[in-house]
């Protein structure tokens, strides 16, 4: 554990709770892509199946359970409890376009040809692109509410901080995980355009609007 990873994890947890709290307090899922949230739930379920046979630390176990339960709760709020407020008309990104390539990549790049390792690789690749339905939705509606922007900023920062963590671990422990690093870089690049808009608009008190 180093400071970069800790900050990355804090940012990740913060993102998850910002989203849950926003939906709960406004009693609305407007502007949130249910499809992205389903993809994140698949990511956590596929990656954290090792909960049952591999113990890293209490910290890891608690975080894994937290991400699985929070993402399931988010999907439940969007598709069941506040279904009437969910903006399904604008949430039209075809998720098979990210599910199928992630699965294919997992069969090509993995650390061993076992079910759990394939699931782990699949989850790493899928996580990199799971935000696409949400970014697509923001582009389609042309704007995002400020709290949604804060959510996206925290979620994007998490993987960017992990990149610093990987650089640090490479020099201090010789640790190098090519699959996570490559996917993590792609994941962070996908947020760059949003980061720019966030800094130039949201942080200056304006609403995030995308030019057509």
């Amino acid at each position: 554990m180093n400071l970069f990873r800790l900050m990355g994890d804090v940012s990740h947890v913060l993102a998850v709770f910002i989203l849950l709290a926003k939906i709960w307090r406004t009693r609305s899922a407007a502007g949130i892509s249910g499809r992205s949230q389903i993809l994140f739930t698949i990511v956590y379920l596929a990656r954290y199946m090792d909960l049952f046979f591999s113990f890293i630390s209490l910290y890891n176990t608690v975080m894994k359970l937290l991400f699985i339960s929070a993402s399931c709760a988010t999907v439940y709020l969007i598709y069941f409890k506040f279904r009437a407020t969910y903006d399904g008309n604008h949430d039209t990104f075809r998720i098979e376009f990210v599910l199928v390539p992630s699965l294919l990549l997992a069969f090509i790049f993995h650390y061993s040809m076992s079910f759990f390792e394939l699931a782990w690789s699949f989850s790493i690749f899928l996580e990199a692109v799971a935000i696409l339905p949400q970014l697509f939705m923001v582009t389609k509606t042309g704007e995002a509410e400020n709290i949604t922007s804060h959510y996206l900023f925290a979620l994007g920062s998490y993987r960017a901080l992990y990149i610093l963590n990987w650089i640090y671990r490479y020099y201090t422990e010789g640790h190098f995980d090519p699959i996570a690093v490559c996917a993590g870089i792609v994941q962070t690049i996908l947020y760059c355009d949003f980061f720019y808009l966030y800094v130039t608009k949201v942080l200056q008190g304006r609403k995030l609007q995308v030019l057509p």
């Binding site: 890293i56 975080m63 894994k64 992990y162 190098f176 995980d177």
Partner: peptide, 10 residues
């Protein structure tokens, strides 16, 4: 360290 035995990150 190149190929990991356990995934210790989240």
């Amino acid at each position: 360290h190149y190929v990991r035995a356990a995934h210790d990150e989240l």
